[in-house]
């Protein structure tokens, strides 16, 4: 795997001190880039200390790559400053939109997968990669709302995006599981169809049933441990594509750091018992 990364943990400021004490082969940390777009202060200083000791990954939630307009110029510039300063091992964003016409919605919104949308996203990913001077990984979304007007399956859409924009994929196995359940298709077949060579990172997270609709509608809540069916999909994916840097994502109901490390160790075991595919 690149940079010797095996399994990592998403990092919040509450866990900076624990992270600095951690030691495990292949351990790395991922943060949301938007939370570090400051001139100074303790949060940036904490990340700098962690980045001096471990590889880090910058994960974006606000570049709105699927919007019908280019990414916000000021936001791109802030991204470029962070990448310049922290030299992250991995950089990633989402196949979604969240900002257009000067309004930002803190969510990852769906869209009909048309040829026109693909052209737009290819252009936006190219702008991002040019601004950062490096390849980025694009993450498959968690979907809730069945839409009309799709011209391509999501796996074909992502494969075309990778081919045309020369980006990589961040495969969120929990998103694949949640979307398959919510929209009524098979998660195994979905993951089997993704182009193996393009996968540069994997996300694992917990989900929760919708408070109103129950198990028929799963929410990508990032507030619970990774579910067993998601672990099974992950093991199947790794057996197919070989080991890839894998992140335990947790954004809410933050458990003690040791609990995240225990989940991370489980992913590390999966990765290190799987030989690299040549």
């Amino acid at each position: 795997m690149p940079h010797g990364l095996t399994a990592g943990v998403s990092l919040k400021p509450q866990h900076f001190a624990d992270a600095l004490q951690a030691s495990a082969p292949g351990l790395w940390f991922e943060v949301h880039a938007e939370n570090y777009m400051a001139e100074g202060g303790p949060r940036l200083a904490g990340l700098a200390a962690v980045a001096a000791a471990f590889p880090i990954s910058l994960h974006g939630v606000g570049l709105s790559l699927a919007a019908d307009e280019p990414p916000d110029a000021a936001h791109l510039a802030a991204w470029a400053r962070l990448v310049e300063r922290f030299q992250p091992a991995l950089v990633s964003e989402h196949l979604a939109w969240s900002q257009r016409r000067g309004v930002y919605a803190p969510d990852l919104l769906p869209f009909p997968r048309t040829g026109e949308a693909l052209d737009r996203i290819v252009g936006n990913v190219a702008r991002l990669q040019d601004a950062l001077g490096r390849q980025v990984l694009v993450e498959n979304p968690a979907l809730y709302l069945p839409l009309k007007g799709h011209e391509m399956a999501e796996t074909d859409f992502l494969a075309e995006l990778v081919r045309r924009a020369a980006c990589g994929l961040l495969v969120d196995v929990n998103n694949a599981f949640v979307s398959a359940r919510n929209l009524g298709y098979g998660a195994e077949a979905y993951l089997d169809a993704l182009p193996a060579d393009a996968i540069g990172e994997i996300h694992l997270a917990g989900h929760a049933p919708d408070p109103g609709l129950g198990e028929a509608m799963l929410i990508d809540s990032h507030d619970a441990p990774v579910a067993e069916p998601v672990w099974r999909l992950y093991e199947r994916l790794i057996a197919r594509v070989g080991p890839r840097p894998t992140l335990i994502e947790r954004d809410d109901k933050l458990p003690p750091f040791a609990a995240l490390i225990a989940e991370r160790d489980r992913a590390h075991q999966v990765l290190t018992r799987t030989p690299a595919h040549v």
Binding site: L109, Y144, P146, L147, K148, G212, L213, M217
Partner: peptide, 13 residues
């Protein structure tokens, strides 16, 4: 919109 129950699903967003 494709299918029934879109209001409850859209509410997630």
């Amino acid at each position: 919109i494709d299918g029934e129950g879109a209001e409850a699903r859209f509410a997630v967003h």
